[in-house]
Design a protein around this nucleic acid. Structure first.
Lengths: 80, 80
DNA sequence: GTACATTTGTTCGTATGTATA
DNA sequence: GTATACATACGAACAAATGTA
C-alpha cells in the first residue's frame, strides 16, 4: 500500500523517516497550510509503527515549526 | 459484583481477558445471536477499565467475527 | 417538535513496562 | 547507560447519530 517504506534495520530512526516523509509532503505542496496531517492512528495503520512512534514523528515536526497541534482535533500544517 | 476479575499484573492483556469473557458468554449461549453485548460504558463500570480498553476488547471480538457493531446503537452477537 | 440521554467514533495527552541496538 | 520502538492502559474532550421523554 505505502510507496514509502520505513526501515527499522537502517541508521535513520523510524520516527525521523516518517517526519521526513511528511516534511516532503509539505515542501512539495501536497500538504498545505492548515491542512491536517495524518493522525497518529493513521500513521500507525499506514506504516505499521506504534502510536508512540508516530507521536515522536509529530513532535519532531512541531520542533521544526512545520506543524501545530490542536488537542482532540488533530495536527495541522503551519501557515507560511 | 463481577465474579470475573481482570488482572493487570498478569501476562494476558486486560482487553484480551474481557474479550475472552464475552466470547465465553457467546459460546455458552448466555449471549445469543443479535443480543447486544455490554456497552463500552457498561464494561467500564463492570471491570473498572478505561473505555478505550473496553473498545479494544470489542475490536478484538469484531476481528474474531463474533460480533458486529451498529454505530450509535451498540454491538451485537453475530448470527450463527 | 424539542430536549435530553445514550452510545459509538475519533483524536490527542500521558504513563508504564518490555525489548533491542 | 542511552536511544529507539513496541504494546498496553489510563484519561479527556468532542462529534454524530439514535432513541426516548
Amino acid at each position: 500500500m505505502s510507496q514509502r517504506p520505513v526501515r527499522t534495520d537502517g541508521p535513520v530512526p523510524v520516527y525521523v523517516q516518517i517526519a521526513d516523509y511528511i516534511e516532503a509532503d509539505i515542501k512539495a505542496g501536497r500538504l498545505r497550510p492548515h491542512d491536517r496531517i495524518p493522525t497518529e492512528n493513521a500513521m500507525h495503520a499506514e506504516w505499521g509503527v506504534a502510536r508512540t512512534t508516530a507521536r515522536r514523528a509529530v513532535n519532531l515536526l512541531r520542533e521544526r515549526d512545520l506543524v501545530y497541534t490542536v488537542p482532540q482535533r488533530g495536527t495541522f500544517v503551519s501557515p507560511q
